[in-house]
Each structure stands twice: as structure tokens, then as C-alpha cells.
């Protein structure tokens, strides 16, 4: 049985509201207040729809700024919840989503599905970014997989990156699809939440197959690909890792060292022989999956 709520909705509303009023001008603040008053006291689908759609014209589209304290507050409100790269209009739209009535799952889904179906690009980004705050999460799993199927890069990023929902609710097949699509479309993989927890033998094999396909075509393989293989080493993957050791690319060797350090597999541990300097640096935190990812994307844009 899945939970009905992922967060205390009142608390989440207050948090978003405080972030907004700190940053918007008086006119925008009044507009937001007027709308939430309307939604709280006389909710109608029509009122919600107009508020949601027209938000950018009244509040603007500037970036939302967060202090480190507010970032940890976000995480306290909902584990893994982050407002990284959010804008004012997106935050406002999601605040309005939190005013949907929650007495009845069918009603909630029916209103929001209609919005999903007729949404433009920025609205889709807001809707998918809202997934971790929605009540009745099991009702939105299919919608989440639809978001993974999208071809619109910003929409895919809203589902897959900096979002705790997929790792918590997707089945293995859908999760693996998310991971591989993120690799395939060149996303920064460390921004996917829950990679370690959701790693599995099937995904490890898919990653190995993917590398072989790329190598056969004479193409590069991002070192981020090896993040989920740590606990699922087989003979093929062991050979793949040996190959990384021979790589001229320092990032590939760094990735190998991180895999070796996390793994308890004896033959994988042995691969560290002759890589003591990198091991040293890894232990000192001089590189990480994040730094590997950032540098890889910098070099391979």
C-alpha cells in the first residue's frame, strides 16, 4: 500500500509561498494572494486552470534564488525535494497545484490529467517537477513514465533530474528506461536521484551492452555509465572495467577507481593495483561522480 501523501501539503504551500513573496514585487504578490485565496475558498477547475496557465504574465519568469538553509528546508519538507534551477512562474504554478482538493483521488487525477494533456512546454516542466509533492503518488506513476517518453529535453529533465519521485515509485523496467535514456541523451547523470538504491543486475547488463554497442561504432562512452554496476559485477562487466583501466581518458580511470572503491568484489578490488595515486585522490575527495560528470560534459559538449 502506497502512502496517500508524500508531504504535508499545508507546509509545502507555506514554504513555496514564503520563497515567492520574498522575491516578487508587490503587484505579483497581490496577484498570487488573490489567486490562492480564490482557490482555497471557492475552488473550481476553471479558476485553477486560469491561474495555472496565466501565472507567467503576472509573476514573471526570473530564476528562483534559494539560500543553503532554504535548500535544506526543502529536503525536510519532502526528502529529495530540490528546487534547483526553478523559476518564479514554475514555483507559482506548483503552489497552485497544491490547492487542488485532496478528498478524492479520482477527482485530483482527472483535473490534473487534463492539464497535462493540454500543457505547453513550461507547464509540462512545472507539472513534472511537482510530482514529488502530489498526493496519491501511485496514481501518477503512469504519467511519470509518459514524461520519460517525451522528446522535449526540458520536460525529460524535469522528470529525470533532481527529482525524487522516479526512484521511489517506478518499477524496475521503467527505472532502467529512465537511466538509459538519460545516458543516451547526454544528461548529467549524478543529478538523477537514487541511482545506488535502484541499481539492479538487469540495468548493469544493459549498461555493459550499451558500452559494447558504442565501442563497436567507434563512439565514446560516458564514464557515468558505470555508476550502477558496482554490486552487479559479472565476467563481461569485469572485462569492461579492465578496459577502462587502459583508457587514455583520466575521467574513465577516475570512474573505475570509484567503482573499485565501492565494490566488495575481489577481482574488481585488484584492479586498483597500479592506480594508487588516483585511489588516494578519490579518498581525499578530489574527484567524485559529480566532478567526473561535470568535466565530461564540459569536454564533450
Amino acid at each position: 500500500m502506497m502512502p496517500t501523501f508524500q508531504t504535508d501539503i499545508i507546509e509545502a504551500r507555506n514554504f513555496l509561498y514564503q520563497l515567492l513573496v520574498r522575491q516578487v514585487d508587490e503587484k505579483a504578490k497581490n496577484w498570487i494572494e488573490q489567486k490562492i485565496h480564490l482557490l482555497a475558498n471557492s475552488f473550481s477547475t476553471q479558476n485553477f486552470y486560469i491561474a495555472f496557465t496565466s501565472a507567467p504574465r503576472f509573476v514573471g519568469k526570473q530564476n528562483l534564488h534559494l539560500s543553503p538553509m532554504e535548500e535544506s528546508e526543502a529536503n525536510a519538507i519532502r526528502k529529495g525535494f530540490t528546487l534547483k534551477n526553478w523559476t518564479i512562474d514554475r514555483t507559482t504554478r506548483i503552489l497552485f497545484v497544491l490547492y487542488l482538493p485532496t478528498e478524492n483521488a479520482e477527482n485530483h487525477v482527472s483535473i490534473l490529467s487534463k492539464v497535462f494533456q493540454t500543457a505547453e512546454v513550461n507547464e509540462l516542466v512545472a507539472l513534472y517537477a511537482a510530482l514529488p509533492l502530489l498526493p496519491f503518488p501511485e496514481k501518477y506513476i503512469y504519467q511519470c513514465t509518459e514524461g520519460i517518453r517525451t522528446n522535449m529535453a526540458p520536460v525529460f529533465e524535469a522528470v529525470a533530474l533532481n527529482n525524487p519521485f522516479p526512484a521511489e515509485f517506478l518499477d524496475e523496467n521503467a527505472w532502467n528506461q529512465l537511466f538509459l535514456k538519460a545516458i543516451f541523451t547526454g544528461k548529467k547523470i549524478y543529478q538523477i536521484q537514487g541511482i545506488k538504491q535502484r541499481a539492479n543486475a538487469t540495468l548493469a547488463q544493459i549498461c555493459s551492452d550499451f558500452a559494447h554497442e558504442r565501442w563497436a561504432a567507434g563512439r565514446k562512452v560516458t564514464p557515468e555509465l558505470w555508476m550502477p554496476v558496482v554490486h552487479f559485477i559479472n565476467d563481461t562487466i569485469l572485462k569492461d572495467l579492465e578496459k577502462l583501466k587502459e583508457s587514455n581518458d583520466i575521467l574513465q580511470r577516475q570512474a573505475l577507481v570509484l567503482v573499485c572503491l565501492e565494490s566488495s568484489h575481489a577481482q574488481v578490488k585488484e584492479l586498483l593495483t597500479g592506480m594508487e595515486d588516483l585511489k588516494e585522490k578519490a579518498l581525499k575527495g578530489e574527484f567524485s561522480w559529480e566532478s567526473i560528470s561535470e568535466q565530461w560534459h564540459e569536454a564533450n559538449q
Binding site: 512546454v121 522528446n151 522535449m152 529535453a153 526540458p154
Partner: peptide, 8 residues
């Protein structure tokens, strides 16, 4: 499509 995919 006009406000989504084509815009992208």
C-alpha cells in the same frame, strides 16, 4: 503540438 513539441 503547436505549443509543445513544435516549439521545442
Amino acid at each position: 503540438t503547436l505549443i509543445g513539441w513544435e516549439r521545442f
